[in-house]
Design a binder for these strands. Structure first.
Lengths: 242, 242
DNA sequence: CGGGACTTTGAGGTAGATCAAAAAGTGTGG
DNA sequence: CCACACTTTTTGATCTACCTCAAAGTCCCG
């Protein structure tokens, strides 16, 4: 089985980008108990309205947070990559107002809320760090609302690719990154149909901005892609971001 | 000048709906220092990217949180009513990724971050309560993303009216509530043009669902309005909600 | 090698945008 | 208390970005 400390370390790396944590606090994070779960491709693993008592750390693959309208249309409200605690908010709001879905195959590490709560009681700085992380999550969502509400289809897609590129780039270069997301799922995130997503991706490819090949996004011209998507990475609060 | 304790009490009422707070913690809230500010109608009072050191409690009127695209189009991502701490999140993320605008005239009470932070250090339950409140704020935004991304123009507007009705109804009946929002602003919240908002409001009026008159929303047939807007109040986590 | 999921392309339809202008409020100063 | 300027609401006419429906092509896995 995989290594819990390694999985938690990726999350810790994300946290310390934004919050100052001392050695004891870091150790408290790395010592969090939990279990690994393998999730089959494209499965809902947290249902809407379900009451949860564990939070999900993405270890490998991707996850999507989503809501659903009456006729079954889905709106993805967040993509989560390895190192993201996808539903940290469930610690303070255990009834999921939002569901989780694996994007392709995924592995998660489920940490009991109790353990997280005792860590925050012992170390107030952790409570603040978690609160901050949830707040950045909300800032990202706020940006999605702006992008999906006000930009053209092409710009929305360009913006999403830029965002994911930056978030992956915290660890490496970011010119290419894994992309298990189907065009239908990208449509669910941008409020478009799969057909239109396909045409916009073709445009971006023909413009030489970005291309998806082999479940991987290739950024061909970052400047151009950012221009098309009106992308400014400041909202991500990744101090190292390009 | 207005009464600080009274203003803070409305916020406290909102907090204790969702979090258990003891007498000392309640007193700490009611003792928070701050200053009252009168804001002229439709002014930006927190700018994008500005670094703030005080949080804004809405005392009277309404406020809107928004982001802006390159060409100046705005997307409102939240409406705040009296008793809401509009940017509590700024305590942990002082650089505003989102701006604030008065909807009509408004009065706010500005509380220094320092005071809020000392309260959370003294009372961990307050840190958790604030974190929870920010999380519910994010859940509301997530619902907006779903509604604006997936529902028809008419449904979006119906949904927004239902939401505000419920949030006002925490205090009173909720069949009618103040509505200083212009049709252009409602368009900025729903991702529609003012012209189309006008037509959809006419439809809702002719259908006998809801009508806006004298800066006030009249809910004519709540059941119908909820049906049109696919509204289910659970995401608001107001235990008293209808 | 066969079946299901995903991608790609085509043709035509429509919800909502855009542009334009009149009507109704709202506030201000004389 | 009226006149003027400005904002907001309302209606009409036209346009278009994106949707819908349909079908062929491609990839992947058992």
């Amino acid at each position: 089985m995989a290594d819990a400390a390694a999985a938690l370390h990726r999350w810790l790396d994300r946290l310390v980008l934004r919050s100052d944590l001392g050695p004891q606090e870091r150790e408290a994070i790395l010592a969090l108990p939990g279990e690994f779960h393998y999730i089959q491709a494209n499965r809902d693993f947290v249902r809407l309205g379900e009451r949860v008592d564990r939070a999900c750390l993405v270890v490998s693959g991707m996850a999507g947070r989503f809501g659903q309208s009456r006729n079954g249309d889905r709106q993805i409200t967040a993509f989560h990559i390895p190192g993201d605690m996808a539903d940290l908010h469930s610690v303070v709001l255990p009834t999921a107002a939002t569901a989780l879905h694996s994007i392709g195959e995924a592995t998660i590490y489920r940490v009991p809320h109790d353990a997280i709560r005792s860590a925050t009681r012992a170390f107030p700085a952790l409570a603040e760090a978690f609160w901050r992380d949830c707040t950045i999550d909300a800032a990202v969502l706020s940006q999605w609302a702006l992008v999906n509400g006000r930009l053209s289809a092409r710009a929305r897609i360009a913006h999403h690719l830029c965002e994911l590129s930056c978030r992956f780039a915290v660890n490496d270069g970011g010119a290419a990154f894994p992309w298990p997301v189907t065009q239908a799922q990208l449509g669910d995130a941008t409020g478009l149909t799969a057909v239109h997503v396909n045409r916009m991706l073709r445009d971006l490819r023909l413009m030489g901005a970005a291309a998806v090949r082999d479940r991987t996004v290739q950024i061909l011209d970052r400047r151009l892609l950012m221009e098309i998507g009106e992308f400014d990475p400041r909202y991500l609060d990744l101090h190292k971001a390009t």
